[in-house]
């Protein structure tokens, strides 16, 4: 799980071009949206692309993204639950 979280942090930074953010800056339990990383609606769509690109997971209903993308840990849990980790 921890390894997956670390890997995800790097992939998020790369996919969302968070050039001034380092993996250590991301608290795996902190909210991805809102104040934390300052992500916006385009980033949310881009996270859907990330899951498909690196984990071959397609999110059929974008509304599901709300719970999946709550934090890095929730993303990792979701990826594991899909058997793709």
């Amino acid at each position: 799980m921890d390894a997956l979280i670390e890997k995800l942090k790097g992939q998020i930074i790369e996919q969302l071009n968070l050039a001034e953010v380092k993996p250590a800056d991301i608290n795996p339990d902190a909210a991805l949206f809102g104040d934390g990383l300052g992500l916006d609606s385009i980033d949310a769509l881009e996270l859907i692309v990330l899951l498909e690109k690196y984990y071959q997971i397609k999110i059929k209903n974008p509304a599901d993204g709300k719970t999946i993308f709550e934090s890095v840990r929730s993303m990792a849990t979701f990826i594991q639950s899909q058997g793709k980790a």
């Binding site: 969302l16 071009n17 385009i42 980033d43 769509l45 881009e46 692309v49 498909e52 690109k53």
Partner: peptide, 9 residues
């Protein structure tokens, strides 16, 4: 086939 919304915008 993986268009990126962050590019498209």
């Amino acid at each position: 086939y993986l268009p990126s919304p962050a590019t498209f915008v």
